[in-house]
Design a protein around this nucleic acid. Structure first.
Lengths: 290, 290
DNA sequence: CATAATATCTGACTTTAGTCAGATATCGTG
DNA sequence: CACGATATCTGACTAAAGTCAGATATTATG
């Protein structure tokens, strides 16, 4: 009754019926689920027919017919791809956009209704993030992004907030050596964000310097993604990027108030070295030769 | 991208594809999903045909045919209900039990595989419990049970463990006035367990005394079910039971280390009274006239 | 005990999803 | 420019799910 497997299976039963209910609410718009899914995929910006087919796992014949039925309803228009006349590109008509908006409203209402059931929404959301990150673990993408991008700035904001909570003296970015964004762009360095679906769940920066080494900065994993060994994946990606940039020596600083970070470095080939900067926050310094 | 609704919808997408994968694994046994679902419902103890139909949301014609196909396969036998010859009762044959066991093995393997993905399984399970409890909130059943039942003992064990964590001096049941089970059985009192699917997620005891009042004891809500206002539902149920037993006055004791409990009592018509027992743990005492 | 309600079953459907083999047009490459 | 690869479409299917109107047997109720 109470072992781990039973708890997972209870969860499965709960979400199976919830998912079924959501599907049913979609059927209320008088269109089979398959067609509704295609319409929504287009609405969410997937215009390339092959991409939609792949995303929804549809047979090409079925896909073709579903698109045709949406065209017959006047919701979708297709035209040839501008660079490849074999491919088709689908767009929503004005009516199609209205219909898509109605599906969006249904989804949003369902989500809001669910949140309203719980008096501590943030705890519930954190739990959902964790489960969703785990379920989609193999689809977490590590993307190189500009450190000024929305995703990067979100991660950095969360990272600073967490340091503020975990350092007994708090954390003030302006006192720290905030890396210049251009040092974390190719060819000097890079910035990598881990994306789970549309949610940024981790980051790491590789900051180029003029001192014969590059630095690893801003390694962060969202609470909702801890336990998935994402920190290790991010570090591997940063080291790979460094190798690609011809960097032979890496350094980083950290703080003993972040023991999980220290453990990660020690178990992945980093060795502790003396202080190499005058940043007030770090008290541990590491180096790794690639 | 990051607002609450978007996070819920990301979760929905993640579980939708996971649920689809689970369904697909069920198809591997050469039987349509509908038939597999009926077989599993019977295997899980739902024998009454109408109950299965209701649980799976099936049309009576469809249900009848699915049952027939399982009978043709030699997996299921049906007979008339002993008290009502209109109703049918389905049971698994020996072969049916074997087949059900194969489905169970698939489900268990899937659950184990999922858990193995995560290095902090307990945090993941807690998150899943919370989400599942919220999703099935309207199906949480408050059942009167014997305080010695497995479910009751599980709740009490969790309750004692939590007191041990939250009281600075720990908690030792033997030092407390452990209520006699027979005082929490009808007609002296009762014991109510909140069940979410197969998981006990809360409890409360109504303990009869010979002093002109009854006591509320052992109010507990599982961490995975907090925020659902289950404590209030349990208290309402206990008070209803007390009224049904002709009890006019209720008392309870609690501890200021459990502030959420104190808040609940104060906002639901209880008034603080002087100490009325010599139990070493409580430091707050309440009374409510029904 | 007549009558309404209930539970299941059967036959005759429709809709949806999915499969598969070609047909057609276009693209990339040597 | 021939040729294989690719993207889509069409026709012809099957399987699964679901719907609906009775038929039958049984039970509950006034």
């Amino acid at each position: 009754m109470l072992d781990a497997v039973a708890r997972v299976r209870r969860f499965n039963r709960a979400v199976t019926s919830a998912v079924g209910a959501l599907d049913n609410s979609f059927l209320g718009r008088g269109r089979p689920l398959g067609a509704a899914r295609v319409l929504n995929a287009i609405g969410h910006g997937r215009s390339d027919v092959a991409e939609i087919r792949d995303y929804l796992g549809l047979d090409s014949g079925l896909m073709s017919r579903l698109l045709r039925s949406l065209e017959d309803e006047g919701l979708v228009e297709t035209e040839a791809h501008e660079n490849d006349a074999r491919r088709r590109v689908a767009t929503l008509t004005r009516t199609g956009k209205r219909e898509f908006a109605a599906y969006e409203a249904l989804s949003n209402a369902q989500a809001e209704g669910f949140l309203a059931q719980h008096s501590q929404a943030e705890a519930l959301l954190a739990a959902m993030d964790l489960v969703a990150s785990t379920l989609t673990r193999e689809r977490i993408a590590l993307d190189e992004m500009d450190p000024r991008s929305e995703e990067a700035r979100y991660c950095l904001g969360e990272y600073y907030a967490e340091l503020g909570r975990r350092f007994s003296q708090g954390f003030d970015v302006s006192l720290s050596r905030d890396p210049d964004a251009k040092d974390m762009r190719r060819p000097r360095g890079t910035f990598i964000v881990a994306m789970s679906d549309t949610l940024p769940i981790g980051c790491v920066g590789l900051k180029g310097t003029d001192h014969g080494y590059a630095e690893i900065k801003r390694l962060w994993v969202a609470p909702a993604a801890r336990g998935l060994r994402l920190g290790r994946r991010l570090m591997d990606a940063a080291e790979d990027a460094a190798r690609g940039l011809g960097i032979a020596l890496l350094r980083l600083d950290t703080n003993s108030a972040l023991p999980e970070a220290g453990r990660l470095y020690r178990t992945t080939g980093w060795r502790e070295i003396p202080r190499f900067n005058d940043d007030p926050y770090p008290d541990l310094f590491f180096e790794k030769r690639l």
